[in-house]
Write a protein that binds this DNA or RNA. Structure first.
Lengths: 228, 228
DNA sequence: AGAACTATTGACAGCGTGTCAATAGTTCCG
DNA sequence: CGGAACTATTGACACGCTGTCAATAGTTCT
């Protein structure tokens, strides 16, 4: 027998996307199957999947669970998303939108000032975001080659903006090295923020000092390569 | 029908733990079932599982595959490891042995010297290791809460040794903050090494400078807290 | 050799997945 | 307004995967 994992909550039967005005149908009358526009239905299923995947491991969320949560036949999930994995990757893709590592509008000023502005803005964004992005990096989500590709791409975008903010995007050669250094810094930033917001082992001031200090080291090292 | 994932290689039938001297039995004669000591059998199955899990995603490795690779009945895998997940976690636990972040024997000298020694030793270890540890952090392995616990524990051990090497383990209060800072540094070290060994976007010298520079920032920041 | 022990097997029950033809809302057109 | 065309949705089917357990067959002891 397939012994149920003790950590796994009982399969949901209740609907999740229930239309507000429509209460549970009186016993006996079968709730007429409601037909939505593809877009709407897709979004609804997606929302349920997103919630479930954030609560449990990939392999512990069945398409049956998702369908039940959406109040829909299981086949419909496959109809819209192909297979479970496709749906999962779509969820990850959405959640991987990285809070930019740097301000969009570069403030003129000394390097030190620009760095401080960058860090401040990054921490502000994260604080507002409330840790949902941080959880992605190491939390309940499964990781594999495909997932990694998505995450790496999101990070690269973010690094690109940081390149601009630091004024490293105008040099000639050595840009790739600068990018690599910033990628490393991005990991530090993520993990520092995690200690601050999730583990609460560091104060904001400390994290700020750490990030700013490191970013200074990184840029100093990158500058000779870029030749600025 | 369960459409086979195109990325998934056909199920192996060949034995993996075949005894060197014993070739494939001549057709017609059923290969007599061989009985090993529990330890040996356990190790053998474990080895096959380790290989398979490093090649494909968790959910794409079936216990049938593992059993086939070991040339053994599927039930035996469950007999030894309880369930698939248990086996998987054991594999992760073994692979998470972190190359220590610092030398065991602390060289006396200036802080700068100790930092350089630390970094050098870390990079040496990693180079010898050949990237198998690095792959773990973000690569083909799935991650979830349990896996994370294992990884965090391994990291904590490593951080503890780094505390000693930096001489931060004798201060009074603020040790937890110092630890947190070093955990963040550990992430930087990992990701820096990845750029060097896996992505090959940075040279060893650059990574060394980056790690040493950051570690200096980190320790400087930790010292006032610890009160050394 | 026979008995006791135990590593190993094979079959069973049940769940999860992807497919596909049938069903039932919705819309269009005479 | 009524039926036809369209298509969102369902339900059942085939099959793979998992965990359990009694039966089987090597090994060891006497």
């Amino acid at each position: 027998m397939n012994r149920p994992d003790p950590a796994r909550p009982p399969a949901r039967t209740a609907r999740d996307g229930e239309v507000p005005g429509v209460g549970p149908s009186p016993a006996g009358t079968r709730p007429t199957r409601q037909r939505l526009s593809p877009d709407e239905r897709r979004r609804q299923i997606f929302a349920c999947a997103q919630r479930l995947f954030s609560e449990r491991r990939y392999e512990d969320v069945s398409t049956t669970d998702i369908a039940a949560a959406a109040g829909v036949a299981r086949g419909l999930v496959n109809h819209y998303f192909g297979n479970k994995r496709g749906l999962y990757l779509e969820v990850v893709r959405l959640n991987s939108t990285v809070p930019a590592l740097a301000v969009a509008t570069l403030p003129a000023g000394t390097l030190q000032e620009r760095i401080d502005a960058s860090v401040t803005w990054f921490l502000d964004t994260l604080q507002a975001n409330g840790g949902t992005w941080l959880a992605l990096g190491s939390g309940g989500m499964g990781r594999d080659a495909d997932v990694e590709r998505i995450l790496v791409k999101a990070e690269d975008d973010s690094v690109e903006r940081l390149m601009e903010a630091m004024g490293l995007d105008r040099g000639g050669a050595g840009q790739d090295q600068a990018r690599a250094l910033l990628r490393v810094y991005a990991q530090l930033a993520r993990s520092g923020a995690r200690e601050w917001l999730l583990r609460k082992s560091l104060g904001r001031g400390q994290v700020h000092a750490l990030l700013a200090g490191t970013l200074m080291v990184v840029v100093r090292e990158a500058v000779p390569a870029v030749g600025v």
